[in-house]
Write a protein that binds this DNA or RNA. Structure first.
Lengths: 220, 220
DNA sequence: ATGGGGTAGATTACATGTAACTTAAGTGGA
DNA sequence: TCCACTTAAGTTACATGTAATCTACCCCAT
């Protein structure tokens, strides 16, 4: 029997990392905030060792920048960085769709359609939060179906960075219906089993998001 | 004036990381070797703190695997992992070529052609080591020209992992002439300025490497 | 007012102490 | 002989001490 005081099982560093990441993704620690080791340690109620480790991990994941003898600062991703991120994401989501199209079966397709119908309902009900949730679930499911662990990891890291960058920006409800039709196109392409078509569908979805981003940037 | 005892300027952790990485890439620490903190610390002549940090970084970069309460082990990449890596690399090298085709100028093209001619000379002289060196330089130059820092970072990490995995395997001199014609095709595509063509050229080069890998795997 | 230089406080980077855990070898009993 | 248990060595994970470095503020001379 595992004797534990409360519901924790992983190490302190791991929990510190998770807490720190959450704090950053929710802008509790806004971009530009300095992540000093003693500060983070106190905030998370751990000693400096796991705090330092958590900060290092956050940095490796691109949620903070680091300068030797200076420390880490929560990443403040500018438009140029977002373009870079989306360029990479376009290529990788395309790959995910290509691989998924070759590996998934009828049930997998049905599962995606079910997700899409929930998503449609949420969009029609104007539930923006749920919309984002289901949008992410859709993409998460596809990369899972692609069955390439490295690809999955990279896409998740990009997703995190985007989430951080978009914290205030990303609520442009105008894109919701478009996303839905694009998702439908992706499912259709996946179902066809044609990897080229699937890749194109996945890529054009992300490419469109990047274009919207650029135009919003010009407008703002 | 910077008062330094010898030619080092970065921190101990950085140097420890570089030394450890070199040791791993040269199979001085072969795949499967356990990287215990005290052991690595002694080997590199530093205390446990920078050693631990170096091991963590190696792990994040995919050159070692990690299990909580167990420690890190030098990555032993099997055929399946290599396929994953090459799948991602194909997509990203394609992107690199696409971006480079849109951003590079005549001088850049000339520079690549110069590299290729050196490469051709090395191949004809049968200088295998130089061949690999120049092959890497070629790809490095293209990602540099692509001008996307995240893309560059990812490709470099993949390159490292491939180098580790291929330490013994990768000397298949039969591929040398093929690589040269493919590189020429890539340069031609880049020069044309057509991003679709450039991407296709870059991708098919990597896709071919993956196919060779699979067939060598079957044969071996 | 302004710029230079010193100084105090905070922080990083590294070193080291130590409890808990993992592993495997040894020991004794069935 | 074989298995359960103990135990010892090695290691991880975390805590903490400390010198060197950085930062920002203040003071003073111009």
């Amino acid at each position: 029997m595992t004797t534990e005081t409360s519901g924790r099982e992983q190490g302190l560093a791991e929990r510190a990392y998770l807490n720190l990441r959450t704090a950053i993704l929710e802008h509790e620690l806004a971009p530009g905030t300095r992540l000093s080791v003693p500060n983070v340690a106190e905030r998370l109620g751990v000693s400096r060792s796991p705090a330092r480790e958590a900060i290092a991990r956050i940095t490796y994941e691109g949620l903070a920048h680091f300068e030797p003898n200076k420390g880490a600062v929560v990443a403040d991703l500018n438009a140029e960085s977002l373009v870079e991120i989306y360029e990479v994401r376009e290529a990788l989501e395309g790959l995910a769709c290509r691989l998924a199209s070759q590996r998934m079966n009828r049930d997998d397709v049905a599962g995606l359609r079910e997700l899409l119908s929930q998503h449609t309902a949420a969009a029609e009900a104007g539930e923006v939060e749920l919309h984002y949730e289901l949008d992410m679930r859709f993409h998460a499911r596809i990369r899972e179906l692609a069955g390439n662990t490295r690809l999955t990891t990279q896409l998740e890291l990009l997703q995190q960075q985007i989430r951080l960058a978009m914290y205030t920006t990303h609520r442009s409800p105008g894109g919701m219906p478009l996303a839905l039709t694009e998702h439908r196109r992706i499912i259709d392409a996946l179902e066809s089993g044609d990897p080229v078509l699937a890749e194109a569908a996945g890529r054009s979805h992300i490419a469109r998001l990047l274009r919207d981003l650029s135009s919003a940037d010009r407008a703002g």
